[in-house]
Amino acid sequence: MRELSGKVAVVTGAASGIGRALAVRFAAEGMSLMLADVDPGGLAETARLAGDTKVLTQITDVSDEDSVRHLADRAFGELGAVHLLCNNAGVYQGGHLWTRTPEDFTWLLGVNLWGVLHGVGAFVPRMIEQDTEGHIVNTVSVAGLLAGPRAGGYAVSKYAALAASQSLAHDLIATGSKLRVTALCPGAVRTRINRSERVRPVHLAVAPGPDDLDQQGRVDAAVDKGIDPSRVADMVVAAVHEERFLLITHPEHETGLRRQTEILLAGGLPPL
């Protein structure tokens, strides 16, 4: 997808972090925007930062199919088309896998996996019908490539999101679609992912345990040292232009992925 100017982009999780950076970057490219999040204040601020481009906003819970379909109806109905879909909304929770509750998995999978699946179901058929160039960017995570300790629930949701992205990319090619897919796998980025509990639904709330609290400090430190979200947005635009499927934001994770593959093929457990 070489030309972005005059096209329409949809971004979920647009109230902060990578989602906000994507919105601002797409606006600079001359795109119209449909922005979604559960945080109305942050969403309004992102719309303001987008400047003079046409911007629509919608409070959207990506874990809810009807909410995402309403978002798609507005985008196609009021903007006429969708050329770039960023299923970006995501939440994080640390802690050992055996301490995760059903409520934890419902929340993590609801946003990180079902948010992608609902976005694909609501938008992609209509994007295919447009019969124009288009692109889907699914924000996965390096945790969807390199699973480690103290974040098993998160890794499960992100591995699944990567599988969904890869299957989608193959499906689109197999059916002759002009749409392409990027699986965005960021490492540490200065976002608010480490404060995801602020948007956790009350009916899924669970008191944090000792392992959650222990991991919180580690994640806080990683986020503080992370790269700026604007750098990720620049990489995404380049990936869309190049039709790149896998986008890894940190070179050291490319090295880790190669090493992991070699060790897995030898039957071993990859080290951290």
Rank of each mutant, 00 (worst) to 15 (best):
M1P: 14
S5R: 06
A9G: 15
V11M: 06
G13K: 01
A14P: 11
S16P: 08
S16T: 10
S16M: 07
R20W: 08
L22C: 07
V24G: 09
R25I: 06
R25F: 06
F26S: 02
A27F: 06
A28E: 15
M31H: 02
S32M: 12
M34K: 06
A36F: 04
V38G: 10
D39L: 00
G41W: 00
G42E: 06
E45Q: 13
T46I: 11
L49I: 05
G51A: 05
G51M: 02
G51H: 00
D52M: 01
V55E: 11
V55M: 02
T57A: 04
Q58R: 14
Q58Y: 11
D64A: 08
A72S: 14
A75G: 07
F76Q: 12
G77N: 09
G80D: 08
V82G: 12
H83G: 10
H83M: 05
L85C: 04
G90L: 07
V91M: 10
Q93A: 15
Q93M: 15
G94D: 04
H96E: 15
D104K: 00
T106L: 07
W107Y: 12
W107F: 14
L109W: 05
N112I: 09
L113V: 13
V116Y: 07
V116G: 13
V120S: 08
F123C: 12
V124M: 09
Q130D: 07
G134E: 07
G134N: 09
H135A: 11
V137Q: 01
N138F: 03
V140H: 03
V140W: 00
G144T: 03
G144F: 03
L146M: 12
A155N: 15
V156H: 02
V156C: 14
V156K: 01
S157Y: 05
A160Y: 08
A160E: 04
A161N: 10
Q166T: 12
L168Y: 03
L172W: 05
I173V: 15
A174V: 04
T175L: 09
S177V: 09
L179Q: 03
R180M: 10
T182Y: 02
A183I: 02
I193Y: 08
N194C: 08
R195T: 14
E197K: 00
V199W: 00
R200I: 10
R200Q: 14
V202A: 15
V202W: 00
V202I: 04
H203W: 05
H203V: 14
H203I: 07
L204P: 14
L204F: 13
A205F: 11
P208Q: 01
P210I: 03
P210M: 02
D212H: 03
D214K: 01
Q216F: 10
G217W: 00
R218C: 14
A221F: 02
A222C: 12
A222N: 08
D224P: 01
K225C: 11
G226T: 12
D228A: 11
S230M: 03
M235E: 13
V237H: 04
V240N: 05
L247D: 13
P251S: 11
H253E: 11
E254C: 06
L257D: 10
L257E: 11
A266C: 10
G267F: 05
G267C: 07
G268V: 05
L269T: 15
L269G: 13
